[in-house]
Measured scan of single mutants.
Amino acid sequence: MDETGKELVLALYDYQEKSPREVTMKKGDILTLLNSTNKDSWKVEVKITVNGKTYERQGFVPAAYVKKL
């Protein structure tokens, strides 16, 4: 869990989004878990840094590609 009590997951593999509802992640990324009720895909939040500014983006990733921490 992070400092706000949200559950975290670790990306086990790289994943490139295939639709606007998904998010891209790299192996080793730590993501905030938002919903894990679907056995196939979990909703997560990723933090992306562009030019020194951090943005948050929500979307789905394959459940088999992440592990709860």
Rank of each mutant, 00 (worst) to 15 (best):
V44L: 02
T32P: 10
G28Q: 00
K67W: 06
R57V: 08
E7P: 09
A64F: 08
K18F: 04
S19W: 08
M1N: 12
N38F: 07
F60G: 00
K26N: 08
P20L: 08
Y65W: 05
L8P: 03
K27D: 02
F60A: 01
Q16C: 12
K67Y: 08
R57P: 01
V9N: 00
A11E: 02
V44S: 00
V23A: 03
K26M: 08
K18R: 13
E3T: 13
L8G: 03
F60I: 04
K53F: 13
V50K: 08
E22S: 05
R21M: 14
K6L: 12
A11M: 03
K39A: 13
T37I: 08
N35V: 07
E17A: 15
Y15Q: 01
E45K: 12
K27A: 11
K67N: 05
G5E: 13
K67S: 09
T24W: 04
V44M: 01
I48C: 12
P20Q: 09
A63V: 05
M25R: 00
S19Y: 08
L12R: 02
D40R: 10
Y65R: 04
L69H: 04
V61S: 00
R57F: 07
T37K: 09
L34S: 00
A63Y: 03
S36Q: 09
L10N: 02
M1P: 13
K67I: 15
E45H: 07
K67R: 12
T4R: 12
I30W: 04
T32V: 15
R21V: 11
V9P: 01
K18H: 07
A64Y: 08
Y13N: 08
V50P: 00
L8E: 07
P62Q: 05
V9D: 00
S36E: 12
R57I: 10
L8C: 15
V23P: 03
L8H: 09
A11T: 04
E7R: 10
P62S: 04
F60R: 02
T54E: 09
A11S: 04
D2Q: 14
T37N: 12
M1C: 15
L12S: 01
S41L: 15
L10V: 15
E56F: 15
D29E: 08
K26D: 01
A11L: 05
A63S: 14
N35Y: 06
K67L: 11
V66D: 02
I30E: 00
L34Q: 01
S19V: 05
M25E: 01
K43Q: 12
P20V: 08
Q58A: 09
R57S: 05
V66K: 02
K27L: 04
K26W: 07
G59R: 00
Y65L: 13
S41W: 15
K53E: 12
L10E: 10
D2C: 15
Y13K: 12
M25V: 10
N38M: 09
G28D: 04
D29S: 05
I48G: 04
E17F: 06
I30N: 01
K18E: 09
Y65P: 02
I48A: 06
L33G: 01
Y55H: 09
N51F: 07
V61Q: 00
L12I: 09
L34R: 01
V44W: 04
F60M: 09
Q58G: 03
N38V: 05
K47T: 13
K26Q: 08
P20W: 08
F60L: 06
Q16F: 13
L34I: 15
A63G: 03
Y65S: 10
L31D: 01
S41K: 11
A63T: 05
N38W: 06
E7G: 11
Y55T: 11
V46A: 09
F60W: 15
K6C: 15
R21E: 15
M1F: 13
K47V: 12
K53L: 13
K53T: 12
N38E: 09
K27S: 06
Q58K: 07
K53S: 10
A63F: 01
K67C: 15
N35T: 06
Y13H: 10
V61E: 00
E56Y: 15
G5K: 15
E17V: 05
A63K: 06
D29V: 05
T4P: 12
G52A: 04
L12N: 01
G52E: 05
A11R: 02
K39C: 12
Y15G: 01
D14I: 06
V46R: 08
G28F: 04
L8W: 13
V44A: 00
V9Q: 01
T32N: 07
V23T: 02
V23F: 12
S36T: 09
V23E: 01
K27Y: 04
R57W: 06
W42T: 00
N35C: 13
L8A: 05
Y15S: 01
P62E: 04
P62L: 05
D29F: 05
K6N: 10
L10A: 04
D40W: 14
V46F: 07
Y15T: 01
G28P: 00
D29C: 08
S41I: 14
M1L: 13
E56R: 15
K18I: 06
V23N: 01
